[in-house]
Design a protein around this nucleic acid. Sequence first.
DNA 1: GTCTATACGCTGATAGAC
DNA 2: GTCTATCAGCGTATAGAC
Lengths: 192, 192
Amino acid sequence: MTMDEKTDTKKQILDIAEDLLLDRGYNGFSYKDISDSLNIKNASIHYHFPAKTDLGVAIIRRATKRFERWAGDIDGKDLPDPKKLDEFFLLFKRFVEQKQQICLGGALETDFKTLPAEMQKETRLFISGTLTWLENFLARGKKKGAFDFTGNAKDQALLMIAALQGVIQIVRVTEPSNFDAVVKQIKRDVCA
Amino acid sequence: MTMDEKTDTKKQILDIAEDLLLDRGYNGFSYKDISDSLNIKNASIHYHFPAKTDLGVAIIRRATKRFERWAGDIDGKDLPDPKKLDEFFLLFKRFVEQKQQICLGGALETDFKTLPAEMQKETRLFISGTLTWLENFLARGKKKGAFDFTGNAKDQALLMIAALQGVIQIVRVTEPSNFDAVVKQIKRDVCA
DNA sequence: GTCTATACGCTGATAGAC
DNA sequence: GTCTATCAGCGTATAGAC
């Protein structure tokens, strides 16, 4: 009922499209996949998102805002830093558990060279937002003594996100337990 | 001139297709892309590889054999283990440096759910070959005292390959130097 | 907002001449 | 081995009725 509330259909399209993107990559799904899934016609999708690029951009922007909200929440919470880090891991673990999907960053980076310019731009914003948050979180935690790792926070953040993104993909062809194995290994290198 | 020597065209097709796969993903290139690049017609590609699946399988099998050859060479060489590890990192670094491509494993895992069954099978073989080699290499190195890391060799191998695969993708949307940053960070955690 | 109808290029693929 | 010709189906996308 609020001013900026999305129509139900528009939100459903976004949800299904995001699901398909994490499942099959940007070039692996079509408007028909979405319309079939919603029992509507492909032309209806074009009403809400004139071109596939618009849909792609909308998915990334929504995910960016979602992460910013999550980060704001976490930063405001009164929790020990290692617990907060676990929450961060959980963000990735959900992909593995539910549907063996991959994370948005990995999906977009893999298809990067085939993406329209606007999507490439949004992809960079999404990634740098995640990296920056983790870097700052780790730096503050190290100063407080909650974390203890070698090297600077930026490199450590990079290693962690790269590893999480990578295992999620590897899990698809090996076994789900590999995700926890990597998390365990990361924690050993980072926790005081 | 030898019995099993490939025709020149067949090899060129394989080379270009592999290049496109690492650049754009399996669903991001077509027979036309290959034929244009070779100044031949798309029907000619079908002579060498009747279906795209055949081409995909051939790419993975060749990469698997290539890695097995590399691993055999390295294992036979008289080099200190850390130098051998550097050679392994170099395998990944080449992708970043040359064309900002991603590694074969990452490309196939991302598209995994859209791949034909035979390609899925070959993908699993390729990945497990790489993981197994690194695991054994790290285990032997630790026993010798060349490496010193916490946790078991299997988890450490997983973390390393996941991180390498992940940064290669992240580099596409950030900066190439991030690859070296992650390698540096890994080495700190693994070298004695 | 959703529909029908339609455009049109690209995709993987085949038949058959050279 | 490579070509021409051709195919059916799918992809994104638009026009216009309801």
